[in-house]
Design a protein around this nucleic acid. Structure first.
Length: 584
DNA sequence: GCCGTTTTCGGCCCGACTGTTTTCAGTCG
């Protein structure tokens, strides 16, 4: 059982407890434990098998350790089975609908017998929901809209897609004369690989006018709510955008608050409370009564709030880059002034995976060269597919030799950038490589990757990849898990074993920067770093414009705490080529 | 259910908006 599955079970328990009306702090304990499990680098089953004490992990106490142990050993959890006898598991899905929480869902179940989305839809269409006390016609209508939207757009939007919708909106909002500051907060600012909703934060002198301007944005399909400080709309893409308008003195505090993550904020506030301070989206306050539901949030002495660094400063922390705000140790590092100097886009000296028209790319080698040179790169690699990928026009030995002739000619015409002769060689189903050894030896850089049989039994898949990366000519394991966000799940295999093997054999692991892949992801990057791996960040470009996707890879690297020295293509050409020769 | 450089008991982050409400519950982020 993988960590993500264990976390899923603990989350199910939390949801069922919530439907039961259990102690909210007990519920939170299960959610906290789920987060710890999901983000833990190595599989917990290994820790359990090794007899490690799980209660050393944050948020894992005696009970949680026992639950995890049971899950690892039997794949089942008695507690969950017992809860599921009392409350249908299918209700969990209902609570995912916006507007339906645990309490309303429970009432729909007990009073109307609703257990599934389909039954909920029938109940709404038959006007049985508006007849319940405390529910009304509007609530019933909202439920129908929510069901429709749920079916239309499952899951989260890819970060790259979100950028397409968000950038024009930001430009539009910036165009309003009363907007002083504007920033997109939330997981978008943290550069998470997918985003749920968009949180737009604005400082403006006339909130009313800005709100009107916002809801009048041409791409708005539906206005969900609209108030003095907060409005929410759905764009035609289905993306929800929440606008928050704050005063200048609160801008930094609001940025912290709405950038999150939730777990990061909780820790930050707890830290403030210990110092007799209260951090809200309005600022940092000292003293004063805790504001109740309808109280003025401005009670107490206003300490600071206009900029982020000061908010962190009053709780004795260095400013933390948004990409790190996931409660993965960044607060502790900020306290000790040891936050890493994260990689930046400007550190990148070359791009080590791209395709040309020789296989499935759209451009000539020379066009790609000129585009790379225009981006100021010191070097780049052409890495077309090998012959197993027939549909991409993968190159066989004869074609590859022909390509080398053209590469040499192009390189002769250009001294401004170094061209590395590379290939993305397919890992065949038995772990052999799709190119002869003598050809591999003549390449400057050899990438290997899986493009077939993603469904292999995990043990076989692991063996296949291990065999491939132990080949002495291999330099980079490209898109290691094979995932395509919202389209194809990562392959099942022992990533830990592969990472260790890569490290031992001088093979770098790729962060594929394409926003459809982002593979390795942030959590895997942290995991790979713990194994001591080196990294390559590549765009996998198939056309010139794809070269600009590099920033997405750098963002995920930052989320994985990477610095310049961890990344091969942030190193000078001379050092890179030495690493590629693997000391042979 | 977890946790402790104030604590092994008593805390656990905070506020806005909506809808159905005569004073507030539920939900969300």
């Amino acid at each position: 059982m993988e960590n993500i599955e264990i976390a899923g079970v603990l989350t199910d328990v939390a949801d069922l407890l919530e439907l039961q009306g259990a102690n909210p702090f007990r519920i939170r304990a299960y959610r906290n434990a789920a987060q710890t499990v999901e983000e833990h680098g190595t599989p917990l089953r290994k820790l359990v098998d090794g007899g490690a004490d799980l209660t050393d992990l944050p948020g894992i106490g005696k009970d949680m350790a026992q639950h995890i142990g049971e899950l690892v050993k039997s794949g089942r959890l008695t507690l969950l089975s017992r809860l599921a006898e009392e409350i249908p598991l299918s209700l969990i899905e209902l609570t995912r609908l916006p507007g339906l929480g645990a309490k309303r869902t429970r009432r729909l179940w007990t009073e109307l017998g609703v257990e599934t989305i389909a039954e909920l839809e029938s109940a709404a269409k038959e006007s049985r929901i508006e007849a319940l006390a405390g529910f009304g016609k509007k609530t019933q209508d909202k439920i129908l809209v929510a069901i429709d939207r749920y079916r239309h757009r499952q899951g989260r939007m890819k970060l790259g897609d979100a950028d397409q919708h968000v950038q024009p909106l930001v430009e539009y909002m910036r165009g309003h004369e009363t907007v002083r500051e504007i920033e997109v907060a939330g997981s978008y600012r943290r550069r998470k690989d997918t985003v749920g909703d968009i949180d737009l934060l604005v400082v403006a002198v006339e909130p009313g006018a800005v709100t009107e301007h916002f809801v009048a944005y041409p791409d708005v399909r539906k206005v969900q709510s609209s108030g003095a400080t907060r409005s929410s709309v759905i764009l035609s893409s289905g993306l929800q955008v929440d606008l928050r308008i704050v005063r200048p003195e609160s801008y930094g505090a609001a940025l912290v608050y709405f950038t999150g993550s939730k777990e990061h904020n909780v820790k930050l506030r707890t830290r403030a409370v210990r110092r007799g301070l209260r951090i809200s989206e309005y600022g940092v306050f000292r003293g004063g009564e805790e504001p109740d539901d309808n109280d003025d949030p401005w009670v107490g002495e206003f300490v600071t709030g206009s900029n982020e660094a000061e908010v962190y400063g009053v709780v004795e922390l260095d400013w933390i880059p948004p990409e790190l705000r996931e409660n993965r140790g960044e607060i502790e590092a900020a306290e000790r002034h040891v936050l890493p100097p994260l990689l930046v886009l400007g550190d990148i000296r070359g791009d080590l995976q791209m395709h040309s028209a020789w296989s499935d790319g759209k451009e000539t080698i020379e066009t790609m060269l000129e585009a790379c040179a225009a981006r100021g790169y010191e070097y780049f690699a052409i890495t077309d597919h090998s012959k197993a990928l027939a549909m991409t026009g993968g190159l066989d030995t004869a074609k590859l030799r022909e390509q080398w002739v053209e590469m040499a000619e192009v390189a002769d015409r250009h001294s401004e950038i170094r061209l590395l002769r590379g290939m993305e060689v397919d890992i065949l189903v038995d772990g052999r490589l799709d190119l002869e050894d003598e050809m591999l030896a003549e390449l400057d850089i050899v990438l290997v990757s899986v493009h077939s049989r993603f469904d292999l039994d995990p043990a076989e898949q692991t063996e296949r990849i291990l065999k491939a990366i132990q080949h002495p000519q291999v330099n980079v394991l490209a898109h290691p898990t094979g995932r395509q966000i919202n389209r194809r799940d990562p392959m099942q295999f022992d990533l830990d074993a592969v990472l260790q093997c890569a490290k031992d054999n001088g093979v770098a692991v790729e962060i594929n920067a394409h926003p459809d892949r982002l593979d390795l992801n942030d959590v895997h990057v942290i995991q790979a770093r713990e194994h001591g791996c080196s990294f390559v960040i590549s765009t996998d470009a198939h056309r010139v414009s794809d070269l600009d996707l590099m920033r997405y890879g750098v963002e995920q690297a930052r989320r994985g705490w990477l610095e310049k020295q961890h990344v091969w293509n942030a190193l000078p050409y001379e050092i890179l080529t030495r690493l590629l020769e693997k000391g042979l």
